[in-house]
Design a protein around this nucleic acid. Structure first.
Lengths: 138, 138
DNA sequence: CTTGAGCCTGTATGTCCTACAGACCCTATG
DNA sequence: CATAGGGTCTGTAGGACATACAGGCTCAAG
């Protein structure tokens, strides 16, 4: 029994879409531009995905939602993919992205503060001009 | 002297682009879709911007870089614009965006951790297969 | 063996920009 | 004053990133 790490439940494109929240057609698009690999095919030609694909696609869709371009995402994924790069090269790419990520976090935290202040302060009142919101525009 | 809050240095489209980092043509695009207001014009027809426009456009470009759609940005800016909405309505919109913002922060923090761990652990070594990076794909 | 859901490919459409073309305005300089 | 340049104006074309649709194949269920 146990074929090692075998429990690879076969997944078709629709199942992958549901598992990741990614649009069905977008999966094919990511395949054509090379950010998702060409998956193995069943005898009937259907794409056959596994857990690796789920994790990779989930990362891609989240990274897109965070404003990373597909080129940046390729760069990040190359860190994972590259068994050909040295650790020193990998470190360089990672470090380059780190500042961008930290800047994004800082921006989001400012927005979060403005929104949570708004929710806290406006609550109940009827004043239609909330000065708190100006924080959004700093 | 001091004309009150008068020091509104006249700014043309190029100056606004440089002040915000936004592309020159994109400014005009944002105007046509209504996310930036039609600015006043100089006698020669040139657009004339002030500090308000700088802050607003800076917010828009940052929010786009953080993965917010233009529709979402319109929603956020309506919080600032709306002198017609009640505080209760404003609170609702703000609360709705708050969860999304916090989710984005959490996702970015996971990426940040994966990258900073990579930078810390890979440094110096020559091993081309860093298990640390798999954290990116959780 | 038909019916329907899901998959296949190719292509058209949509959003969000970005770039270009042709004309106008303004300043500087010979 | 003439003109050369750089900036602006409008309209429109092009590109990146998806998303939707059309026509046909496959497969399990009834």
């Amino acid at each position: 029994m146990g074929k090692g790490h075998a429990s690879v439940k076969a997944m078709q494109r629709g199942a992958l879409a549901r598992a990741t929240g990614c649009n069905l057609e977008t999966i094919r698009y990511y395949e054509t531009i090379g950010v998702m690999p060409d998956p193995p095919r069943d005898p009937n030609g259907y794409r056959n995905y596994g857990e690796d694909h789920v994790r990779r696609l989930r990362f891609i869709t989240r990274a897109r939602a965070l404003g990373f371009s597909l080129d940046e995402i390729k760069g990040l994924l190359s860190l994972v993919d590259s068994h050909s790069q040295t650790c020193a090269e990998v470190e360089g790419v990672a470090a380059a992205h780190l500042k961008e990520v930290r800047d994004k976090i800082a921006d989001l935290q400012r927005i979060e503060k403005a929104l949570s202040d708004t929710v806290a302060q406006c609550s109940g009142a009827q004043i239609p001009d909330c000065p708190v919101l100006d924080a959004l525009l700093v």
